[in-house]
């Protein structure tokens, strides 16, 4: 073993080249393993859009359906409920739905809906993921105080939302409830999970 006449530069270059190409190889080899942890075809099929018939949903009533394993609330709001919405503005964290991640562009309005009377909202509290329950009764009878304007109440940590799923001030939840992508296939048939004409979600 002798080190006479060793071209150190060449040796360094070849070492770096081997390490470089080898690292590329390791990254390529690791990719399938990382990707295999994504939702599988089964999970994606279970998460496919669901079509809901709302023709039987009466005024002032709520329907709970599952989409991607999460509860989706569909509420047929009365005129009285809709009228109260604008009065809530000073009590709310984000009354004008400024946080874009919480709703698709077509729900960026007072009703947070495509059609004012029909609310489609994800029943997942933005605090820690509990399912808020409906508290549509107004006033003291609701048990939430005499000035309660009706909405949703989360039992886990006491977060409150109004009838558009907008979060009230001074509760643990930071954001308005999520509005999922949805579309009307007919007047009474809603597709949840897709808002494009093409079926792919």
């Amino acid at each position: 073993m002798s080190e006479d006449g060793v071209d150190r530069g060449k040796r360094r270059f070849l070492t770096a080249l081997t390490v470089g190409v080898g690292t590329v190889g390791v990254v390529f080899a690791a990719t399938p393993f990382v990707l295999s942890m994504n939702p599988s075809a089964r999970a994606r099929a279970a998460g496919a859009p669901v079509d809901i018939d709302i023709s039987k949903l009466e005024l002032g009533q709520m329907l709970v359906v599952a989409w991607r394993g999460k509860p989706v609330y569909i509420v047929n709001r009365t005129q009285a409920m809709l009228d109260r919405l604008s009065k809530n503005t000073p009590l709310l964290v984000d009354p004008f739905s400024k946080v874009k991640s919480q709703q698709p562009p077509y729900a960026d309005n007072l009703y947070r809906a495509r059609k004012p009377e029909i609310l489609v909202v994800l029943g997942v509290c933005t605090h820690l993921g509990c399912a808020p329950s409906k508290a549509f009764t107004v006033g003291a009878a609701s048990g939430l105080g005499a000035d309660w304007p009706g909405g949703f109440f989360c039992h886990c940590h006491g977060s409150k939302y109004d009838m558009s799923g907008r979060v009230f001030k001074n509760v643990p939840a930071p954001l308005n409830l999520d509005i999922p992508p949805y579309m009307y296939l007919t007047d009474t048939l809603i597709r949840i999970g897709s808002d494009k004409k093409k079926g792919a979600a």
């Binding site: 393993f33 990707l35 295999s36 942890m37 599988s40 075809a41 089964r42």
Partner: peptide, 28 residues
């Protein structure tokens, strides 16, 4: 092991689940 089910009723199907449904499961 992340996708396999050690259950006589599910084992065969879970291996095929790896082969058909899990991304890159066939390669692994």
């Amino acid at each position: 092991t992340m996708n396999y089910k050690p259950d006589a009723a599910l084992a065969f199907g879970s291996v095929q689940y790896i082969m058909y449904d899990v991304s890159w499961g066939w390669l692994i």
